[in-house]
Design a protein around this nucleic acid. Structure first.
Lengths: 236, 236
DNA sequence: GCTGGGGCTTGATTTGGATCAAATTTCGAT
DNA sequence: ATCGAAATTTGATCCAAATCAAGCCCCAGC
């Protein structure tokens, strides 16, 4: 027996690009089978290789996507509210390529994958939104590949900082929203090297105090980092 | 004045997953604005940053997708017939993230992007096919990222060879379908290092003679490469 | 307040891979 | 067939980053 979701959850989900333009009835039937759950930190939500039974939505907290091979692990992305993850696996009804764990206490919605696929065929707006979202995801991963293959780790860090700065409204000071060891893994380096990389960026006007970053010489950092919209912009 | 495409081109395109299930009329109107052209080798078809005016289909020959930053260049993928490329940019009406050049004499179809987007809204089958295709592309790039971040260059080469072997019907001998320096770039290494890597794989039963690879000790190579369907399979 | 453990930093060392330079092979064009 | 340019290979060297090993700091829990 389904009890129905709180209005606050519903409206948050509804505001996602993925759902905002779709028909009310269709949204309703998607939400019919959806349930929302609170998870403590460090809970593994899905493991790579699992059947993709649900599309996930992070309503609050944060989730790390990571992958393993041969006893090595790499952080692939961090999902912040409000967004979905593992859309592609859901669409293709294929096993997850990445695992997911909560980083902090998180509120998460689970939408049955078969419902997503069913409503896709009924609602053209929803189909359009899914395809737009997937294309965006694809392009992010391509940008990430370019970052990895074309830049050194120091350049990746410098550009990461510039992106974070942009995200926080071009302030000269901002907080890292990621533990450093996770950031290291995201950037494809070791924690030790990240630490040294921060030191190296001092000469380009980057101060670090714990999670607090201040950029004291914007021009100098940008001259070194050479940010490129075709790698570093979110929206394009 | 549009002259219409040769039947052979039409039927080849029609056989693509992307187009095979769509309505005849809709396929027709897509093809209305499409033109097909033969290109010599080494022609730059598109440059990253360009407006995505067309969706491309390689009918014969081959095309390399590559990216540049700060005077460095990296090969991102090779497109073999019959497949499309830069679908995501077309869908989002966003600038290309990658450049493309012909590797050999190639026959290529150009479908106006606005027609693709228009027909998407009319034809649910086509919409379904696009979303499936995009999800597949997304998953390939994720697998590629895992390959890059979790494996050493030697491991990447070993697994690349096993994938090629699978592609060529599990024969113990097969041809590299890529110039070595391009392969090096695809695998994220220098040509010099690729050469040394091939030498290192001798001890795991890999013989190299020009473009001809023979795998003399399958078990040994697999033991070293540790292939994983969540990185190395095409279809999943 | 202590205290213990995890995360972060620092230093020393090793290793993988890049770069530079040159020899060799391959292959297309004449 | 021969020439020349490009690709590949090989060797020497350099550099970036991983690893190993302590030590420090922060703060969560007693």
């Amino acid at each position: 027996m389904h009890l129905g979701l709180p209005d606050s959850d519903l409206s948050e989900m509804r505001s996602l690009h993925l759902f905002e333009d779709m028909d009310d009835t269709h949204f309703g039937s998607l939400m019919q089978g959806t349930y929302v759950q609170n998870f403590p930190p460090q809970i593994e939500l899905i493991a790579e290789g699992d059947r993709s039974d649900f599309l996930y939505v992070v309503l609050s907290g944060s989730v790390e996507l990571f992958s393993c091979w041969n006893r090595r692990e790499s952080s692939m992305a961090t999902i912040l509210p409000v967004s979905t993850f593992i859309l592609a696996a859901t669409i293709r009804d294929a096993p997850y390529l990445m695992s997911a764990r909560t980083l902090e206490k998180s509120r998460i919605a689970l939408i049955p994958s078969q419902d997503v696929r069913a409503v896709f065929d009924l609602d053209a707006q929803f189909a359009r939104a899914i395809v737009t979202e997937l294309a965006l995801c694809y392009r992010s991963v391509v940008k990430n590949t370019k970052d990895l293959k074309l830049r050194t780790s120091l350049e990746r860090l410098a550009n990461y900082l510039l992106r974070q700065q942009r995200y926080s409204g071009m302030a000269n000071e901002f907080e890292l929203r990621l533990e450093k060891r996770r950031l290291a893994s995201v950037l494809g380096m070791t924690p030790e090297n990240l630490s040294r990389a921060f030191k190296n960026l001092k000469s380009y006007g980057v101060r670090v105090d714990g999670n607090r970053i201040s950029i004291t010489d914007q021009a100098d950092l940008e001259k070194f980092a050479k940010p490129d919209p075709l790698i570093d912009s979110y929206s394009i």
